[in-house]
């Protein structure tokens, strides 16, 4: 009876998180559950634009962690979220399949089949901006080799990990999560575009107390340390 009551009182914290946050938020979720034994963290991972669309159309969640400020601002404009806070940044890298020689950004047009994120997906928008910084001609030469624009960064990663694509641009954290199946080459900071990750509690959060606790954990030094272990940069 006591157990049943506890289960009823506790409930789930539903966290909508950008696909690139998978491993780090899973770890933070496990940490949170250890400290809140009666609570359960449910992660809904996807392209930030997809999660934002779902929230726009009434999906119920406690927290939203986006890979860009565009999606968060759009929810803020509709007053669906409380004050967002930036909790991490991320850098773009060039990846190739694990058994291929590494590929520098300047050599990217030599890859026969390139996969990028769609322009609507944060990683795709960041990639476009980064390529544009190298000049219109370079961007066109890369775009000529693009065979697919995926709807979240993990789909981009999967195409290279499967060996179906020769190269892609993902976040450094995804390249780390891909392990030995992919090989990453970093991009000089001056040439790169950095992803900004804001997190906010939904105004209509069903579990506002737990949501605030999870938010605090993400922003805490321990949260920072976890994120940094997975390759994220401090905000």
């Amino acid at each position: 009876m006591a157990l049943l009551l506890a289960a009823l009182l506790a409930g789930d914290v539903v966290v909508f998180a950008a696909a690139s946050l998978k491993e780090s938020f899973e770890e933070l979720g496990a940490l949170f559950e250890k400290e809140h034994p009666s609570a359960k963290v449910r992660l809904d991972l996807g392209g930030s634009q997809e999660l934002r669309t779902q929230l726009d159309h009434g999906a119920s969640a406690d927290l939203f962690a986006s890979a860009d400020e565009v999606q968060m601002d759009s929810l803020a404009r509709h007053t669906l979220v409380l004050a967002p806070a930036v909790f991490a940044r991320n850098e773009l890298v060039v990846i190739v399949p694990g058994n291929a020689p590494p590929l520098a950004l300047d050599d990217l047009p030599r890859a026969r089949r390139i996969v990028l994120g769609d322009k609507a997906v944060p990683v795709g928008a960041y990639s476009d901006r980064m390529l544009a910084k190298r000049g219109a001609a370079f961007r066109r030469s890369v775009e000529a080799q693009v065979v697919s624009r995926e709807l979240n960064v993990r789909q981009v990663l999967a195409k290279v990990a499967l060996g179906e694509a020769d190269a892609a641009i993902v976040y450094r954290t995804d390249a780390i999560a891909g392990g030995t199946r992919v090989r990453a080459t970093r991009i000089a900071a001056a040439d790169n575009v950095f992803a900004v990750y804001p997190i906010a509690q939904l105004k209509a959060a069903p579990q506002p107390g737990l949501a605030a606790d999870f938010l605090r954990l993400v922003l805490s030094p321990r949260g920072r340390a976890t994120l940094s272990r997975h390759g994220f940069l401090p905000p």
Partner: peptide
């Protein structure tokens, strides 16, 4: 895949556009 003009058919375009 999902590339406008090459592999993005009507249903894929709807799915892509739904988010933008």
């Amino acid at each position: 895949g999902n590339l406008s003009g090459r592999t993005q058919t009507l249903p894929l375009a709807i799915y892509t556009a739904m988010e933008s």
